[in-house]
Design a binder for these strands. Structure first.
Lengths: 245, 245
DNA sequence: TGATATTGCCATAATGTTGCCACATTTGTT
DNA sequence: AACAAATGTGGCAACATTATGGCAATATCA
């Protein structure tokens, strides 16, 4: 699932040099010699980043044309010009046309690679800015109500997805929404939109615990409060809890 | 509503020069001399873009520190380093720290201004949903919403056209637009502009899957979420881990 | 117009989920 | 310690949802 980078450059030596370096950084790199082959490939599938030379063989401004055409396809695709020409006029034109960066070929490879990862960093950061609403984090657990998924991050920082059914999901949701608060069986039923026998709630809790323990053997966030119901104990809550029985 | 740009720079001449130029471009510009005053102002309200000098009076690396601090406040705020130092080491460090661009002070003003507007253009483009984009790539799939075509690129890098009907196309589009998000049957109906029996949605999914599997036998991007609906599982989405808050 | 493609829906099979029971275990009380 | 109440566990049947193949109705196109 690494990012795909496309390089459009007519000079073979430069092209392969950059391609090799980027491949060694873990990117998937495809190279194109002229505008035509690039156009053809891009209309089938867009890469995650395009690096363009301006002059392409006969086409003195082939890169510019390609950039403009790409921008009609996607307004968000990152485009970098990488060219021998070093003059403000070209730079400004390139940026105006919709490039995200404009670099000259005397750039060092670490520098290029740093700019690329900065561009990707920015893109990833922008991807989900307003996602906060659907995300609820409690201790090691993250609930996403849009994806309807629950993720558990273990101590070694690996994150596992807990595969819950709808009823189980709503029950975890109800418990985790107010960590430390005891919910009795009636409340849990209401929150999960079911009306059933008390024993059924017990069964659900049983299955939920089992699913969590499967990926986190030490899981004990669902505490049973004898005679009252259940309570979600996140790691921090447990530490701050004054009474231990 | 014009964008607010903050400049943090200790040399008065340079500071005012840039500020004037940017103001003439229609931006609201605030200037700060040292890290302390900038920190104070940013705590109250973040600008839309920050331009930083690295060396601030006594603080040789004040800009770096400020950048790191800003990144803890916002991962998306555009930050540009503008400095006299011209060496790769600083550039790469700056970009690593989370800057979006790193420019030297000998840059021409039109060039600077072009870079700023390119940065804003990118930000604005990412804010809007991909509605505008004709081409959307999700994992191995590329959707052309104008030509209403879907391409699938297999592992051996061959690309196949998936021949979908209009209804099927809208359904794939609706699912792939938010990879990982669960869509129930009602939502799918709305997105596909049809109002039919639930079972009909099941049938459509069946036919869509069949068509994908015909060219990609291992296709399993459409996951059924029992009792909730369907979800498009992009290869990259699965690896998405929850972020720390 | 006929030929073809698309669509909605049904019957049936396959699968996933839920509710609850019997029994074991724990907890709180006398 | 003895007891009653509450909870944990495994399992299973009932139920709900989805998958599949097929067919008729409708739409589309040559």
């Amino acid at each position: 699932m690494s990012k795909r980078i496309a390089i459009v450059e007519d000079e073979a030596a430069i092209r392969e040099n950059y391609a090799d370096v980027l491949r060694s950084q873990g990117y998937q790199v495809q190279t194109y010699v002229d505008r035509e082959s690039a156009t053809q490939a891009f209309s089938l599938r867009l890469p995650h980043l395009v690096i363009l030379d301006i002059g392409l063989e006969e086409e003195y401004e082939g890169g510019f044309i390609l950039c403009q055409w790409l921008r009609t396809l996607s307004t968000t695709l990152p485009i970098i010009f990488l060219t021998a020409r070093d003059n403000d006029f070209d730079t400004v034109s390139g940026l105006r046309i919709g490039a995200d960066d404009y670099l000259t070929k005397d750039i060092s490879l670490p520098h290029l690679s740093a700019r690329i990862s900065a561009l990707f960093r920015r893109q990833d950061a922008m991807k989900e800015p307003q996602q906060e609403d659907h995300l609820i984090s409690v201790g090691s657990m993250t609930i996403d109500s849009q994806r309807m998924t629950v993720q558990w991050t273990s101590e070694n920082n690996e994150s596992h997805t807990i595969d819950l059914t709808i009823t189980e999901f709503w029950m975890v949701f109800a418990l985790a929404k107010h960590p430390g608060h005891v919910k009795n069986r009636t409340q849990l039923m209401q929150d999960s939109n079911i009306y059933v026998d008390d024993s059924t709630i017990t069964s659900h809790i049983k299955r939920i615990r089992k699913k969590f323990i499967k990926v986190a053997p030490l899981f004990d966030c669902i505490e049973t409060v004898y005679g009252m119901g259940y309570r979600w104990n996140d790691d921090t809550t447990a530490a701050n809890s004054p009474k231990a029985l």
